[in-house]
Structure formats: structure tokens, C-alpha cells
Amino acid sequence: MLALDDVSIIYAARSGPVQAVSGVTLHLPVGGSLGLVGESGCGKSTLALAALSLLPPEARLSSGAVRLEGQDLATLPEAKLRRLRWTRMAYVPQSAQNALVPVHSLRRQFRDTAAAHGMRSAAADERAAALFQRVELDPAILDRFPHELSGGMRQRAMIALALLFGPSLLVADEPTTGLDVIVQRQVIDLLRDLRTEDGLALLFISHDIGVVAELCSHVAVLYAGKVMESGATDRVFSLPNHPYTMGLQRAFPDIRHPERSIVSIAGHPPRLSAPPQGCPFAPRCPFAQPLCHNTVPSLVAGPDGRAVACHFAADAEALRDRARDPALWDAAA
């Protein structure tokens, strides 16, 4: 379905080039689900845009390829790409508040999207009403303006809009950020239903590993534009092999282990305009050795379909034990 092969993306910033994503390889099968997790600024959203071939003009794919159903998106002419968008792949952005056109009613936005792909207004209206029912919104809301809706309604309208042409891939970039817990729940349930009932492939981006664990069968943990660890979600989160995943896991409350205290990983992600020489996580890693600071570990595939980029992946068992101590994480930096 969607394959990212060794993708690197460089932003041309005022202060010089910034390597936002380096050498990321991901694979999302038809009807599959892949979660991208990491702190803000780790390159998640950039990857989402790259997957849709929507990078802003100041960003460029410096190496690698993005393939949708085997087609390299970079080689497609803009006109072909345009027809591919929304019919094959749709997008639910971070903030529905800003992503909906503020001066048009929802109906108008459905119609404009439909018109771009040759669907008539009457057909678009009919389809929009049906989709609104699917996402449990009153079709009367179609005539409202975005600012007249609540955050949850907007996000559901956004998802309905994404389903206009029944795409086979949905890229959702932090779709629950800024929503209250109950609405978050509704949106997550909706996405899960879509996945199971409609067979939609889902690329889901979030900083919240709990949500990812619930929605995605596979996960990739990103740090400083690189994949630190990837594999089946339940395996990665129950037995993390990378110290960063361990820390990330301890940073969220776990319903199964309410007694565990929440830690925060001390320090900040590195500046991507001047990346560190060795492992990008080394400056914050409580287990870092001199080797880590000097040599970049490569992403090594394991026997169970997992991959880890850590020099000490072989010692993961022992590291997991040590990582249980909350004091460890505070002391690192």
C-alpha cells in the first residue's frame, strides 16, 4: 500500500539546512495500521506530509522514495498526483479548526472537493449526508460554518470529508490533540471502526503511545527524524528494546500498572540543524556509553519482525530492568 524507502527530508531554513527526517523506511500493508510516535519536532508530521507528497516548498525529499501502491510519488506529474489525492489517500490534519476553510460552509467544502474530482454537487450533497450519518453528525450541520461547531464536531466533519471518495489510505496527524477526553474517545472509536469495517489503511501519528497501542497493529518510534525502534505494537510496548521507547513508555500512565510513577525524560531533543555525532538519543540516554556518543547505531532487524537502532540492543533485557527505577530518568541529564 504505502512504502517509504530510506526517506530523508531537508528543510531550507533561514539559518541553514535542517535535516528533519533521515533515512526512514516504513511499510504499511493494505488495510494495515501503522503508528508513528515521538515527541514534538521528531519529524512525525513531516513524514505524514511526505507520505501524501504535500511537503511545503521549503522542504525537499533529499533521498529515498515514497511509493503508493508501487508508484513512486516523486516521479508522478502534478496533475496525476492531484487526482490521486483524496481519491486514494486522504488526510485528517492536526487541527480541524485551522484546516477547514473558515469562510465556507461545510457543504461548500464537500462540493469543492467533489468538483475537483469530477463529482457533481448533487452527488456530493448526497454522499456528504450519508457520511455525516456515518460519523454520527446531523446532516443539517453541513450548512454551518466551521467556527460554529464544537471541536469534536469539527474533527468528525473532517473525517467525513476524508471519506468522500472512500480512500484506501488515511493519514491522521494527531487527530485527537486539543480535544477533551470524551471527544477523544469518540474520535478514536470512529477511526477504529473505519479501520475494521471499511478496511482502510491507517497511518496514525501521535505523541500518545496509549492511543497508538489501541489503534495500530504496528508502530515506529521516531526520535530526531530517525526510527529508533519498530515492530508489532504489543511487542514493542511490552518489551521495548530501545532506551527511548522505555522512557517514552514510562512517560505515560499505564492502566495495567497504576502504581508506577510517571517519569519525564530529562533534556531536549537535539537541534536538527546541528545533529550530534553519535546516537541522537545519547545525550539524554541514562545508559549511554562513550561508543554511543561517537558512532551512530544502525537500525538492525531482529528475528520477530522488529528493528532497533541501539548499540546495546542485545542487553535490552537488563536495561528494561534498570529502566524501572524512576530516579534513573531524572538523573540522566
Binding site: L49, L52, L54, P56, R82, R83, L84, R85, W86, T87, A90, Y91, P93, Q94, S95, N98, A99, L100, V101, P102, V103, D112, T113, A115, A116, H117, L161
Partner: peptide, 23 residues
């Protein structure tokens, strides 16, 4: 964001420009 979204929705360049002009 809504301009990126308009592009994602596959709006033609002309339609995108009209949207930008209108806002």
C-alpha cells in the same frame, strides 16, 4: 493549514488560488 488541506483534497491549482484569493 487549510491551504495544505485544500492541496491534499486534490483541488486544482486554480481552485486553490481562488480559495486563497477569497480569504
Amino acid at each position: 493549514d487549510f491551504m495544505t488541506h485544500a492541496r491534499a483534497r486534490g483541488l486544482t491549482e486554480r481552485a486553490q488560488r481562488r480559495l486563497a484569493r477569497r480569504t
